[in-house]
């Protein structure tokens, strides 16, 4: 099942190449011909949206860059080698993707060891879910060192408000992976917010079989949520659920349970009803903007706050909406990106 969004991205890529060429030509005429900036891009699991957004930003802005792309392929042991290479190449800036790469190359705390980490070269990070909790940066206003970056997770409170604005709810249903500590933390936070927002959380763990959460147990859990009068199914940004999104969302649809996803995929290429996310692509663009501020604007990374994109992407899966008959309010619909592969528009 090829997602419409991917087709779009490919189309966009092709067009971008043309646009970037044009922009470069303009740049040349304007007479700012300096050596391209060299950026070392360290990735965790290959080229994807954020990396593309990062690259496209420079192309759109007509900023000449030379990208040195390295993929760790989810292997932490390669990171020291990346650090050494970036240093030896004397690149202008380092881009790190994900928590593992960022921590592995940039270190944590106020004074990481210069021998083991990149400290002299400015760096930008993206797709780090908890930059403060992991010690990458002390707070979101300033890293206090030679790095800055972006966040990409929509705050839970914003997600809940989004659900509320679609349709008020009293009981929020959720299936979670009991082996994932983050899920438990998230449940606590949702419960706390539930007190203020006046709803109760009905959270059911997936069954654990052989020390692993069992995908097969998901439909039963969803049915139990429905029986418990849940108004909405909340799908957290969780790897287990992301992998098994088709099972989860199909079960919800079968139970006529509207679902909200805090990630792109369950809505875009599965059957979650709607979602609120920061798109990786936009996050990559914003990270590139910060990189450009460092490279072109002469700003110090420590003076650039760490923040998410200004605009939240609201995704609505119209076929699911139609089959549930739970229609989005006009206001939300006006702001949303509609996923509707059947519409011949």
């Amino acid at each position: 099942m090829m997602a419409r969004i991917l087709r779009r991205l490919i189309l966009a890529l092709a067009l971008l190449a043309v646009a970037a060429g044009g922009a470069r030509a303009d740049e040349g005429k304007a007479g700012a011909p300096h050596r391209p900036f060299r950026i070392y891009m360290a990735l965790w699991r290959g080229w994807e949206g954020a990396a593309q957004g990062f690259k496209d930003y420079f192309a759109n802005q007509g900023i000449p860059v030379e990208l040195i792309v390295r993929d760790a392929a989810q292997d932490p042991s390669r990171l020291p080698e990346f650090v050494a290479e970036a240093k030896s190449l004397h690149v202008d800036l380092v881009f790190t993707w994900g928590t593992s790469v960022s921590l592995g190359m940039l270190g944590s705390g106020p004074h990481p060891d210069p021998a083991k980490y990149i400290t002299d070269i400015p760096a930008v990070f993206a797709i780090v879910s908890q930059p403060v909790e992991t010690g990458l940066v002390p707070n979101y206003r300033s890293s206090g060192r030679n790095i800055t970056g972006t966040t990409y997770l929509v705050p839970v409170e914003t997600q809940l408000n989004l659900i509320e604005s679609y349709r008020p709810f009293k009981i929020l249903g959720m299936v979670y992976n009991p082996l994932e500590r983050n899920s438990l933390v998230a449940i606590d936070e949702i419960r706390r917010l539930g007190k203020a927002m006046d709803f109760t959380l009905l959270a059911l763990p997936a069954d654990v079989v052989d020390g692993k959460p069992s995908p097969a147990s998901i439909p039963a859990k969803v049915a139990a949520l429905k029986a418990g009068h849940a108004d909405f199914l909340y799908i957290p940004p969780d790897t287990f659920l992301n992998v098994n999104r088709d099972i989860l969302t199909a079960a919800a649809l079968e139970q006529k349970l509207p679902s909200f996803a805090a990630a792109e995929n369950p809505v875009v290429d599965s059957k979650a009803m709607f979602g609120g996310v920061y798109r990786y692509y936009t996050v990559g663009q914003l990270t590139a903007l910060k990189a450009a501020q460092i490279l072109m604007g002469g700003k110090k990374p420590a003076n650039i706050p760490i923040d998410p994109p200004k605009r939240l992407s609201i995704l609505i899966n119209m076929p699911v909406v139609r089959s549930l008959g739970v229609y989005p309010p006009m206001k939300l619909l006006g702001l949303a990106e509609v996923v509707d592969p059947t519409a011949a528009k």
Binding site: L9, L15, T282
Partner: peptide, 16 residues
Amino acid sequence: KHNAEDQLALGFPLRQ
């Protein structure tokens, strides 16, 4: 503006 910004939010550059 509204229409154009909706599309910008998808990541398309303005000229496209």
